[in-house]
Amino acid sequence: MTRRQSGPNRTDILQGTLDMLILRTLLFGPVHGHGIATSIEKTSDDVLQVDHGSLYPALQRLQAMGWIKAKWGLSENNRKAKYYSLTAAGKKQLSVESSRWERLTEAMARIMRPAKDET
């Protein structure tokens, strides 16, 4: 895969978290694929790098699970684009995943903090 313009502060998305980030992005309404990618990048202040190519398998997977649904529409600059939106099951899944994520980061933080203090 390509490693594009990856500065020291840029990082690839953690494996397994892309689904959660997509669901989170869709929480405020329908967004198309490109919009999801740029939204994740912008919201993370360009720290997170979305591999645009890997976005589409993830979107198909989420559709298969019934968490999101898709509909063709027109983009801001009048271009045909496919818009994704959360389903009820998707909203439930998002809350499951974000609470799991919180538990995970807290646990990670508890482990990493002492080490930081000692240096």
């Binding site: 895969m1 390509t2 594009r4 591999d51 645009h52 190519g53 890997s54 976005l55 589409y56 398998p57 979107l59 198909q60």
Partner: peptide
């Protein structure tokens, strides 16, 4: 370039 491999994206989808 930013999108990456079209083939991979389609295959994995």
């Amino acid at each position: 370039i930013k999108f990456g491999s079209l083939v991979t994206a389609r295959e994995q989808s």
